[in-house]
Design a protein around this nucleic acid. Structure first.
Lengths: 186, 186
DNA sequence: GTCTATACCTAGATAGAC
DNA sequence: GTCTATCTAGGTATAGAC
């Protein structure tokens, strides 16, 4: 695997477990076993790293969503698979979705990274909305009256669930927070 | 107003707008117009400040919740008032509830602060659960089947809504993310 | 209680050799 | 592409005068 990819992999893990401001190029250098200056060769500034991270993450995540659409015919099954994605990202409260991890970063991200982040949110809700619309048609999820509102709400709920699990370092908090959605699946 | 209180007020604002790691004692000294060393006199380490902040915040927030219970007789009205609290805390995407701001902090909080944070989450969901139970009795909120699950979900939803509004610096994201809950009020 | 001054450390980033 | 060495800025914290 090339150095660039290894750096992104380790940086993603660090950003998601400690927050983007919670690791330094020194930490990244340690975990990839190269020197700090070499990290700067690949990513001159941390701002460059943030952009590369979120851009890659968005592509990979969208692929997964499309995979769900192809594998699951019903809206209920798609929502459950969506929750699986975020459950995995939460990793028992040890980790956050990269999007959440960067969203809560204090230090100003470069405009390009902020735009990627906004695009990520837009893409995910844009994927969710037709899922809830499908639910109205196939009846595999109860009480859907406004697919657009449901899409926003579901995203907020999984993001909040990750935060709660992380604060308590307790995986069951995530489950408790999404239970109301799971229970609506027929 | 005494210095201690002024320090806590400014520190709370800074923590909620920039994140707890996003301000330094130097920033706090600047905004309160005393010297950095004097800040250290009141709060020897930043860990002490985190604990004082969350402990005070929990008390104040619980007071507000009790106020809602007394002022609003129906479950629907209580949920709307609860949302008002978080809408105000979000301040158009410029701010976060202190609890969220500290929950997403990268740097390890002292155990006592972590315990306060967990207690805050526990207290709020403990307040929400009987509200949803009341909804089942008074019919002022649609589709409540599991008050306990609803309490967890509502908390996740408002926390996630704050994160989304903050990431986009856009107040309408908060509204969009809680719309599904608002629409359930009769 | 508040101040000036300072010590210590870490993070981000660059220079220049190999 | 990777290294050693170094610079600078800023954050946390303390000493000691007033």
């Amino acid at each position: 695997m090339d150095t660039q990819t290894r750096l992104l992999d380790h940086a993603e893990t660090l950003a998601r477990t400690r927050g983007f401001d919670g690791f330094s190029f020194a930490d990244l250098a340690l975990s990839t076993e190269i020197r700090k200056a070499s990290v700067h060769y690949h990513f001159p500034a941390k701002a460059d790293l943030s952009l590369a991270l979120i851009a890659r993450y968005r592509g990979v995540f969208l692929e997964k969503l499309h995979g769900i659409s192809q594998a699951e015919p019903t809206a209920g099954a798609r929502v459950l698979a969506f929750l699986d994605l975020y459950r995995a990202a939460s990793d028992g409260g040890r980790s956050l979705c990269l999007c959440v991890a960067l969203s809560v970063t204090q230090r100003a991200l470069p405009d390009a990274a902020r735009a990627e982040l906004a695009a990520f949110h837009r893409d995910v809700t844009a994927w969710l909305e037709p899922v809830f619309r499908l639910a109205q048609a196939d009846g595999s999820l109860r009480h859907v009256t406004d697919p657009r509102a449901e899409a926003s709400a579901a995203m907020a709920q999984v993001e909040g669930a990750q935060i709660m699990a992380r604060a308590a370092r307790d995986a069951t908090r995530f489950e408790a927070a999404i239970q109301s959605l799971v229970a609506r699946v027929i």
